[in-house]
């Protein structure tokens, strides 16, 4: 099977400081990959660099388009990058307020990305928005309410609906369940797991939570100090960690 995303030797420095250093991985269609590590390990820098929101200091990121051709992200114009983000990718931020438009209704938040793709029929947009609210377990009667009136967990589910409504091929997620109550987390993780399976989308997810990686990702990258220290099957990394840092991470998890 051919990869969807190819990351080769990617570094991103902030002046003299290292964000991430010499990272390589591939992502296949339909696959969810987790990037784990503590805060400051470079996870989010890597995610933002791979998603073309930051430009790499070194290395390359290549993406295989629907037509089969490879795109080198560094060679893209800003307009092409925006088109890609709109038409083929999605991004879910840790704080849903960063990913949502707070001054428009829940329904408009879901419909907006479809409108950006050219869909104009109001009743059709509304029907799709309704369907997606149901899919992420938000009462469709809240369709005209502003997201500011939603709880944090609802806002995150709304952001997921807004991102997935266009059926992106590739989704980037930055700690989508951090900062939420445990019961709310479980609901969102289950939802993501189901949607990823149903839609067959590929995703890269940053998390500091090893249990999240175990639940969602077949493969995991472990980062420390900007570098990948261990990579492989998630269950292998968690049950038989090789690197001292991974052993420390795994042994530090509280079990109930």
């Amino acid at each position: 099977m051919s990869a969807l995303l190819q990351v080769r030797g990617v570094s991103r420095h902030y002046g003299p400081r290292i964000g991430c250093e010499d990272v390589s991985f591939e992502l296949h269609p339909g696959e969810l990959l987790c990037i784990v590590g503590e805060s400051g390990s470079g996870k989010s820098t890597l995610l933002n660099t791979v998603a073309a929101q930051l430009s790499p200091t070194a290395g390359s990121v290549r993406y295989r388009q629907r037509n089969g051709g490879w795109l080198d992200l560094a060679a893209l114009s800003e307009a092409d990058r925006r088109r890609l983000a709109r038409e083929e990718w999605g991004f879910v931020t840790q704080n849903p307020r960063d990913g949502l438009r707070l001054n428009v209704s829940a329904g408009a938040n879901v419909a907006e990305r479809l409108m950006a793709l050219g869909m104009r029929n109001y009743s059709q947009l509304r029907a799709i928005a309704r369907g997606w609210l149901e899919r992420v377990e938000i009462d469709p009667s809240r369709i005209d309410d502003a997201p500011t009136s939603f709880s944090g967990g609802m806002q995150q589910r709304l952001q997921i609906a807004r991102t997935l409504v266009t059926q992106p091929r590739l989704v980037f997620m930055d700690e989508p369940t951090a900062g939420l109550d445990v019961s709310v987390q479980a609901r969102i993780l289950d939802l993501l797991r189901r949607l990823v399976n149903e839609l067959g989308l590929a995703a890269v997810m940053v998390t500091h939570d090893l249990a999240v990686a175990r639940l969602l990702a077949a493969r995991t990258l472990v980062m420390q100090g900007g570098r990948v220290v261990e990579t492989g099957l998630t269950d292998q990394i968690l049950d038989d960690p090789q690197h001292p840092y991974t052993q420390l991470l795994v042994s530090s998890v509280l079990t109930t």
Binding site: Q236, D239, D240
Partner: peptide, 9 residues
């Protein structure tokens, strides 16, 4: 068994 399943390396 875990080594065979590749859960352990």
């Amino acid at each position: 068994l875990r080594v065979i399943y590749a859960n352990y390396r």
